[in-house]
């Protein structure tokens, strides 16, 4: 197709790439149309009515209907583009319910990936083809931005709270990862690869590495950091019971109620006094500055995995793609 000779767009390697390029082509045609229109008007008028051929200018005041016309038409086109793009935006910004989780930590000038099955990768992300992959991203220092041109996805990675992105790769292969928010000296070196594999090859890759899953790693941290002494789960324990808490609605001591998503769990570990569960004292010590982002991700994965007895289907499914 055209793009083979003149590279008009990167490879379409995700479900959403086609829609994005369609909108792009529509806008390119719109731009060409209006630019040619203006250019033709300007060139034609300035040649046809040049001084030597048309020495006496006709003074025209203007015409209100024409003004209304060339306000309404651009407004109409603009609204079409707005709605079309807004639908695409909502589709891209909210991950589907059943999607594979990957945790990404951005650090000055590298990407660290953590799979729920325990694998840890640097600047590489192995994912199976035709699967919804939801990225939960956080930064350890400055603002980065995770961008895969071939999947047409990008989202800033903020220090201080989780941000999300998702994709569904349709073609096996290796695709670029770029950091697109300026982050310092080796901003242009903070690149990597997404390796999309056939299901069989992916299973082979999965089995290649030993070591416990992320949730098991989280459980070990949960014990070693002393969390289990308060959050023992027995009635009358000093800390709230974490069984099945993830995704549920938690009442806070100041009367508000908050949905317990990843950001709530992370904030409660780092700044416990920010949102104290109703009925509990502000006695949890802060762990700010003592736990790395990776350990935090393991603890979050562990809390997510405590789905409680049958409250939710087991396994890695996470309730609702929370933004």
């Amino acid at each position: 197709m055209l793009s083979k000779y003149i590279p008009l767009w990167p490879e379409q390697a995700s479900t959403v790439a086609g829609h994005m390029d369609l909108l792009y082509v529509f806008l390119v045609l719109n731009t060409i149309f209006f630019t040619v229109l203006v250019a033709v008007m300007v060139v034609a008028f300035s040649i046809k009515f040049r001084k030597s051929k048309h020495p006496v200018a006709v003074q025209i005041e203007g015409s209100v209907p024409l003004e209304i016309f060339w306000s309404a038409v651009p407004l109409g086109i603009a609204m079409v583009i707005f709605v079309w793009a807004a639908v695409l935006y909502f589709h891209l910004m909210r991950a589907p319910r059943e999607s594979m989780e990957v945790y990404i930590t951005g650090k000055q000038w590298m990407w660290k990936m953590q799979h729920p099955t325990g694998q840890r990768e640097i600047n590489q992300l192995h994912v199976p083809v035709n699967t919804n992959v939801r990225l939960t991203m956080i930064s350890q220092d400055v603002i980065h931005s995770f961008f895969v041109p071939e999947f047409r996805i990008k989202h800033d990675v903020l220090p201080g709270r989780y941000t999300y992105a998702w994709f569904n790769a349709t073609k096996p292969g290796t695709y670029h990862i770029f950091c697109t928010e300026y982050c310092g000296t080796k901003h242009s070196g903070m690149i990597g690869e997404v390796i999309v594999m056939e299901p069989a090859a992916y299973q082979l890759w999965l089995s290649g590495s030993t070591g416990g899953s992320l949730a098991q790693e989280g459980e070990r941290q949960f014990a070693s950091l002393g969390c289990v002494t308060c959050h023992s789960g027995q009635p009358g324990a000093r800390g709230p019971n974490l069984e099945g808490v993830f995704g549920s609605n938690v009442k806070i001591s100041d009367g508000r109620s908050v949905t317990a998503d990843e950001n709530y769990v992370r904030e409660s570990i780092l700044n416990p006094q920010a949102k104290i569960v109703a009925g509990y004292g502000p006695i949890m010590p802060t762990f700010a500055g003592q736990i790395s982002e990776e350990t935090l991700i393991q603890l979050v994965a562990f809390v997510k995995s405590k789905q409680g007895t049958g409250a939710k289907a087991g396994g890695q499914a996470t309730p609702g793609g929370k933004q």
Binding site: M20, L23, F82, A85, V87, Y89, M93, F147, R152, K154
Partner: peptide, 14 residues
Amino acid sequence: LFLAALGLDIHLTD
């Protein structure tokens, strides 16, 4: 207009 369009801006910004 490309950049004001929400969906496209995801790919085009920065």
